[in-house]
């Protein structure tokens, strides 16, 4: 996750409070999604951006996880995410993010 996005998330947390935020990721690249998830939970793994050493512990999900799908009206989800749902290995991405949440002490 680049420095600009890290700064934006940090600012949002300061303004809104971590308890009022959920991060939803959209990257189809599993490695990038996992790094982003780690960044918003335990801090920037690359120790380069504004979230280096900052443990926000924000709940983080991928748009293709069943928890997000259940929270979105079916028609909207189909329109916005239906295409990528056919392409990405949704089970694998769900397992990767559940592991990140578990290791950050959040409910998986």
């Amino acid at each position: 996750m680049d420095s600009e996005n890290q700064a934006a998330i940090k600012k949002l947390v300061e303004e809104t409070g971590a308890e009022n935020l959920v991060v939803v990721l959209g990257s189809a690249n599993m490695d990038l999604a996992e790094i982003a998830a780690r960044t918003v939970t335990v801090g920037d793994p690359g120790f380069a951006g504004p979230l280096a050493g900052v443990s926000l512990r924000l709940p983080v999900y991928h748009i293709l996880e069943p928890e997000v799908k259940a929270a979105v009206p079916a028609e909207v989800y189909e329109q916005q995410a239906g295409f990528m749902e056919l392409i990405v290995d949704t089970d694998a991405i769900g397992k990767r993010l559940a592991e990140v949440r578990r290791s950050a002490g959040l409910s998986a």
Binding site: A28, N29, D31, L32, G82, F83, L86, I87
Partner: peptide
């Protein structure tokens, strides 16, 4: 280097178009 398999991703997208058009079943991707 974490950039993924570019052609494979593209082929899955073209196959997904065929699924959305109901030309093939999802299991046929």
């Amino acid at each position: 280097s974490g950039s993924g398999n570019v052609p494979l991703n593209n082929y899955r997208m073209i196959a997904a178009l065929a699924v959305l058009r109901k030309e093939i079943d999802r299991s046929g991707i």
